[in-house]
Write a protein that binds this DNA or RNA. Sequence first.
DNA 1: GCAGCTGTGGAATACGCATTCCACGTTGAC
DNA 2: GTCAACGTGGAATGCGTATTCCACAGCTGC
Lengths: 280, 280
Amino acid sequence: MSNAAAKEQPPQHFDALRTAILERKHELPKRLTQVAAYALDHPDEIAFGTAASIALSANVQPSTLVRFAQFFGFDGFSGLQMLFRARLRERNSSYEDRLRQLEQDGPALTESSSIFNGFISAAHRSLDAVIAAVEPEKFERAVSILAEADTIYLIAKRRSYPISSYMAYAFGKLKVRFQLVGTAAGIDDDMLAMATPKDAAFAISFSPYASESTAQARVMAARGVPVISLTDSAFSPLAECSKEWFEVVEADHAGFRSLSASMAFAMALTVGIAEARRRH
Amino acid sequence: MSNAAAKEQPPQHFDALRTAILERKHELPKRLTQVAAYALDHPDEIAFGTAASIALSANVQPSTLVRFAQFFGFDGFSGLQMLFRARLRERNSSYEDRLRQLEQDGPALTESSSIFNGFISAAHRSLDAVIAAVEPEKFERAVSILAEADTIYLIAKRRSYPISSYMAYAFGKLKVRFQLVGTAAGIDDDMLAMATPKDAAFAISFSPYASESTAQARVMAARGVPVISLTDSAFSPLAECSKEWFEVVEADHAGFRSLSASMAFAMALTVGIAEARRRH
DNA sequence: GCAGCTGTGGAATACGCATTCCACGTTGAC
DNA sequence: GTCAACGTGGAATGCGTATTCCACAGCTGC
């Protein structure tokens, strides 16, 4: 056996195991590869779960887990699991250290690191702001309006476009009928002309507002199509023509905004809609 | 029994249990006091050990541990142990408090609201995971590779596409030359054929990996174009052909993932690159 | 000083667990 | 086309586990 040597010397530390898995991943048969990927992606599950529960999540047999562990020189699954547990104990302390370090020597860090930390913390703040700003009842109403729609028209340009494109991707997976407005040039108006009051529109626009998006939302509203919108100010022109609108203010770092909170909001709306449809 | 009420409502969270133990420690009989002290002093042992091993360390009988758990309303020792385990998992999240509150309110809220809260908290968790996973040095190296590039080729499909499209928007504003691969069908290969080792590529792909993205990244690497990538597993085919690669595991809510953490990472990278260029 | 009650230790038990084993598929070589 | 070797799924097994139960000890109130 090629792993006879390994059998006598299983990895003693999580990092060693991780390295071994990555090094030998190409020699692994199909199911063991599956386990390897699951193990590295969900280490916490391995640490706490039982062989049976882990096997279920990873879509393999418990015996496969044992074989996997044996492949890397352990007696059985339990031996491998100990490494995952040890890691969790260590990580807690080291993670705390890191946070403390970040707070202390923030100014001393390299510029890239401080930009990185800045965006992460801006994202945290944005999420906090969103959860405070969005009223559950309003959200509920928006979900039901969109869930009852025949087709959902997604209106977004420029900075908002990534959000609508992700919603489009998710709607596709969830089998919710939609139209992404603004993909091919010129035919937007024709597309919108097909919308009826049985449909609905979801418009996204942040300051400075793209005039096209605003205009399109107005047209829809005028024709009786219910419009839900996501924007960053109560003064947004979108607010006027919307049945429900949400204000999401992304915190910025050095003047640049990411879309972390908007993305989370959009995903919640998307899944909420799909879920509401499934129930009816 | 004085703890009849507690029997119906065991603490749902570690902190609640801790409080309960401290509050009621004077009502506890001798051996249970001993267990209480041990539990608060060695929480990790409780999380990882077995009833037998813990009983040995704490100099009590296993049955005493069960009685202790039952005193606080749990069915048995296992129920109490779960709190200690959950604590270890959450420990690296500074948002413990908020999450707990969300979980408590959870059942009372409408489904839409709980979906909403779920995505926001998943986003928080993702951000925490990102900041723990990304090494500053690695990030720094990636920034300088991309900052030195003549043109940055952005490779992303499907779920990753919104990220690259936002980077494209930001690069445009920041006057960084880039090429978004995959917009118009068919000409991708011609576009990539123009890349030289003086350029660089940034590839994004999450499981299940789009074969096109992987293939394109491989082609670039083979031609000497440095590739930086963002993916969700060390097993990603992107990892092999990249000069630097980053693992961002988005936490999921009910099986759906948003892109909050990836977005924050992408923005940090984007601004980091622009900033590095400005300095030189 | 006796009765009743709570607290305690330790054996008995039933369950769930990791592990083993074997039969079936699948693949690749000759 | 046949055979061997390997990978795989799933049932069988035996062990370790949490839990229950019961007998006894130590109080407390009367």
